[in-house]
Amino acid sequence: PKDQAKKEIEKALRNGDEEKAKRLAKKYGISDDDWKELKKRVS
Rank of each mutant, 00 (worst) to 15 (best):
P1Y: 10
P1W: 13
P1R: 10
P1D: 14
P1L: 14
P1S: 14
P1Q: 12
P1T: 12
K2Q: 14
K2Y: 14
K2I: 14
K2N: 14
K2S: 15
K2L: 15
K2E: 13
K2R: 11
D3T: 09
D3Q: 08
D3G: 09
D3A: 11
D3K: 08
D3N: 09
D3I: 08
D3P: 07
D3L: 10
D3E: 13
Q4A: 12
Q4V: 11
Q4T: 11
Q4S: 10
Q4I: 11
Q4P: 07
Q4W: 13
Q4L: 12
Q4Y: 12
Q4M: 11
A5E: 14
A5S: 06
A5H: 14
A5P: 07
A5G: 08
K6E: 13
K6T: 14
K6R: 10
K6D: 05
K6V: 15
K6C: 08
K7C: 09
K7T: 09
K7N: 11
K7P: 03
K7V: 12
K7R: 13
K7W: 13
E8P: 01
E8L: 12
E8Q: 09
I9Y: 01
I9V: 10
I9S: 00
I9H: 00
I9K: 00
I9L: 03
I9W: 01
I9N: 00
E10F: 10
E10D: 03
E10M: 15
E10A: 07
E10G: 04
K11Q: 14
K11S: 11
K11M: 14
K11Y: 11
K11W: 12
K11I: 13
A12P: 01
A12H: 10
A12E: 06
A12M: 11
A12G: 01
A12Y: 11
A12T: 04
L13K: 00
L13W: 02
L13I: 04
L13D: 00
L13Y: 02
L13M: 05
L13H: 01
L13P: 00
R14E: 04
R14P: 00
R14S: 04
R14W: 06
R14Q: 05
R14Y: 05
R14H: 05
R14G: 03
R14M: 06
N15G: 10
N15V: 09
N15E: 14
N15F: 09
N15D: 14
N15Y: 08
G16M: 05
G16S: 04
G16D: 05
G16Q: 05
G16L: 04
G16W: 04
D17H: 11
D17C: 08
D17M: 08
D17G: 02
D17R: 06
D17K: 06
D17S: 04
D17T: 03
D17E: 13
E18W: 08
E18I: 08
E18T: 06
E18D: 07
E18S: 05
E18N: 06
E19Y: 08
E19I: 10
E19H: 08
E19D: 10
E19T: 09
K20R: 12
K20L: 14
K20G: 13
K20T: 12
K20W: 12
A21E: 00
A21D: 00
A21S: 03
A21L: 01
A21I: 01
A21F: 00
A21H: 00
A21N: 00
A21W: 01
K22R: 12
K22S: 06
K22N: 05
K22Y: 14
K22P: 00
K22W: 15
K22L: 15
R23Q: 13
R23C: 08
R23W: 12
R23T: 10
R23Y: 13
R23M: 14
R23F: 13
L24Q: 02
L24M: 07
L24G: 01
A25K: 11
A25E: 00
A25I: 02
A25W: 03
A25G: 03
K26M: 12
K26Q: 11
K26F: 09
K26E: 12
K27H: 11
K27R: 09
K27V: 09
K27P: 01
K27F: 13
K27S: 07
Y28A: 06
Y28D: 02
Y28T: 02
Y28H: 08
G29Q: 11
G29A: 09
G29R: 07
G29C: 05
G29I: 03
G29T: 04
I30A: 01
I30H: 01
I30L: 14
I30K: 00
I30G: 00
I30R: 00
I30Y: 06
S31G: 06
S31M: 03
S31R: 03
S31Q: 04
S31W: 02
D32E: 13
D32G: 07
D32V: 08
D32R: 07
D32A: 09
D32P: 08
D33E: 14
D33C: 03
D33R: 09
D33F: 05
D33W: 04
D34Q: 06
D34A: 06
D34H: 03
D34P: 00
D34E: 15
D34R: 02
D34L: 05
W35C: 01
W35V: 07
W35Q: 02
W35D: 00
W35N: 01
W35Y: 15
K36T: 10
K36G: 05
K36Q: 14
K36L: 15
K36F: 11
E37K: 05
E37R: 05
E37T: 04
E37L: 05
L38S: 02
L38T: 02
L38I: 15
L38V: 05
L38P: 01
L38D: 01
K39Q: 09
K39P: 02
K39N: 06
K39D: 03
K39L: 15
K39E: 09
K39G: 02
K39M: 11
K39R: 07
K39W: 07
K39I: 15
K40N: 15
K40G: 07
K40M: 08
K40V: 06
R41P: 05
R41L: 15
R41C: 08
R41V: 15
R41S: 15
R41G: 15
R41W: 12
V42F: 11
V42R: 01
V42L: 09
S43R: 08
S43A: 14
S43M: 13
